[in-house]
Amino acid sequence: MTTTSGTVEYVATPEQMIDAHLTWMRAGGYAEKSVRASRRVLRKAHTELPEGLHAAIGTELAAWLDNPEWVRATKCAYHKHLVRFYRWATNPKDPWMTFDPSADLRAPKVNPGVPRPAGDELVRAAIYDTADPWRINCRLAALGGLRACEIAALRREDVTAEVMHLWGKGDKARAVPTHPLIWELIAPLPPGHIVRRPSGRPPTGDWVSTQTAHYLAAAGIPTKLYPLRHYFASTINQRYGDIRVVQELLGHASVMTTQRYTAVTASRLREAVTVLPFSGSDADDTPSAGPAPSDAAAQPPHRSEASAPPAARRGRRPRRPGRGRP
């Protein structure tokens, strides 16, 4: 592959292409987690493809994605990184490649996620029977709907007794009301990150999620931050009944994503079925069909011979216009 700089043409290596693509992602506002994931996937693909990332063809990409050891979610994520890279590389305004091998690459189908909120007893144990900082993490997820990456980025100066100012995926900002049990733990904290690593390094979403899960498992509480966030969404949707409100609280761009977080309980399903008629044995449950028609009303009306046309009285069909003699 070649690219030009003024009148000088030079050949770019795949490593240079990947680095330039990552720079483009950072300039476009992609989260650093997404940039790191893209770097890992692109380097993996370049190493494992027969001719490398820069000389691959569509069938090679399809064969690489058809790895039986990968789940469909992994294949879908890898497909997304590849398509974004090749579309960037074949941009006619600044081309690094002359063709896009991913143009006809079909995205793997991924089944929609099933809501899996934590139960009330697990939530109660997670927000009351745990030690800090894990208790703060659990309350932020269950009572604020925060993602692990948002918990990691949250600072004391971002939280007041009324509202939490959050930075979500793609550095999208949103405000979520502060639950009293959250404020109870955050109010006395000093400025800086709410969650602090023992090493002093800034916390990451992966670290917050993994360490909280390990602590909860050791404490005998079989749940994680993600089911606690699902609990937040499902409970508000069931009690408040407005999925658009839930969408704003969770920071979703599409309400379709929010629907995967909101579970419908079996009791709500039973209540919905009971509104149908014929739900009981009483006669009152049967919808009334109205009074039975009388014999006179049931008989179709007969036209008298006086009202019938002359041809019908003589047993002949009426003459059609234009069919008789002139």
Results as ranks from 00 to 15, higher is better:
Met97Ala: 07
Thr98Ser: 11
Asp100Ile: 13
Asp100Lys: 13
Ser102Cys: 06
Ser102Val: 11
Ala103Ile: 13
Asp104Ala: 07
Leu105Glu: 05
Arg106Gln: 03
Pro108Asn: 08
Pro108Cys: 04
Pro108Trp: 07
Val110Asn: 00
Val110Phe: 00
Asn111Asp: 07
Pro112Trp: 01
Val114Glu: 02
Val114Asn: 03
Pro115Arg: 04
Pro115Tyr: 03
Pro115Met: 04
Pro117Gly: 02
Pro117Arg: 05
Pro117Ser: 01
Ala118His: 11
Gly119Arg: 14
Asp120Arg: 13
Asp120Glu: 08
Asp120Pro: 05
Glu121Val: 15
Glu121Trp: 13
Glu121Asp: 13
Glu121Gly: 12
Leu122Gly: 05
Val123Thr: 12
Val123Cys: 10
Arg124Phe: 14
Arg124Trp: 15
Arg124Pro: 12
Arg124Asp: 14
Arg124Val: 15
Ile127His: 11
Tyr128Lys: 08
Thr130Glu: 00
Ala131Phe: 05
Asp132Tyr: 08
Pro133Cys: 01
Pro133Trp: 03
Pro133Ala: 00
Trp134Ile: 12
Trp134Pro: 00
Arg135Thr: 05
Ile136Val: 15
Arg139Tyr: 03
Ala141Val: 13
Ala141Pro: 08
Ala141Thr: 11
Ala142Trp: 02
Leu143Met: 06
Leu146Asn: 01
Leu146Ser: 00
Arg147His: 09
Arg147Asn: 08
Ala148Ser: 15
Ala148Leu: 07
Cys149Ala: 14
Glu150Gly: 02
Ile151Cys: 11
Ile151Lys: 09
Ala152Trp: 02
Ala153Val: 02
Leu154Cys: 03
Leu154Pro: 09
Arg155Ser: 08
Arg155Glu: 09
Asp158Gln: 13
Asp158Ile: 08
Asp158Val: 08
Val159Tyr: 09
